[in-house]
Amino acid sequence: MNAVWSYLVAIAVWPGLLFAAPLGWLELWFMRKLVARLQGRQGPPFFQPFFDVMKLLGKETVIPRGVSRGIFLALPLVSVAAVTAALAIVPLPGNPVPSLPGDVVLLLYLMEVPVLCEVLAGYVSRSIYGQVAAMREAILSLAYNLPFLVAIIAMAQVAGSFQMRALQEVPYGLVHLLAAVTFLLALPARMKLNPFSIANAEHEIIADSHIEYSGPPLALFKLSHAIEVVLLTELFAVVFIPATPWPLVNLVVYLVAGILVLGGVTLLATTTARLRLTQAFRFYWVWGGLASAITMAATLVR
């Protein structure tokens, strides 16, 4: 009973939905504001990401003709559920969920679910734009997952365990640095930011894979993206930032680290054009592969 409650609290309250959604909106607002200021613009008001979701919630849901209603509506729900569950596993300070052996594997799987949902959303939409976006998303995930997975697996290799707590407690060393760089390499593509905003290139394929989505289902996809941003930044902080014995200090450090990471990828996004799919793929398999190889080598050499 106690364990069930702790899971429920973790998914619904902290670090789950209740805190992650506002945090995600805050981070999205920060990115948009920073982009705007870098481009010499005013930028959106603080509550804009929240307003966006609320506006979508009040709008009509249009389901394209010939699309299975069940899967069309289920995809955004699954996407939100998966990222929230993934976030609930991340051992942020105060997370009530007990650490499980092998939760890293679960986490990595859950993190792939939103991507899968997006790909499926594009394919079921019966829109050529959505289908091209889905294809791009799928191929891109093959590219960026190389450095992304290697960064986490290298840490697990060092820790000798596939348990999040163990990853967190690895003594700080060179592998941390190398793996962090490898992780950061994958981050812009995972967040669909420039120069890897290929699956959501509105000037090429009008929109991303949820082109046919509208109203509350689209709001759920947006919410899922917001939580994913929190998940990625906090995962980076938890795994690669050395922890202090004080949970509150840790929390502050993690949040600041998350914002800093976002600032970095935003800066990259504002100084670059969008690459082509083949170029992005080559980049990740050459430079991402190189970084992965070095990281893995470092775990062995240690």
Partner: peptide, 9 residues
């Protein structure tokens, strides 16, 4: 069209 918003601005 090449996704370079900052340059556009």
């Amino acid at each position: 069209d090449i996704g370079f918003h900052s340059l556009f601005m």
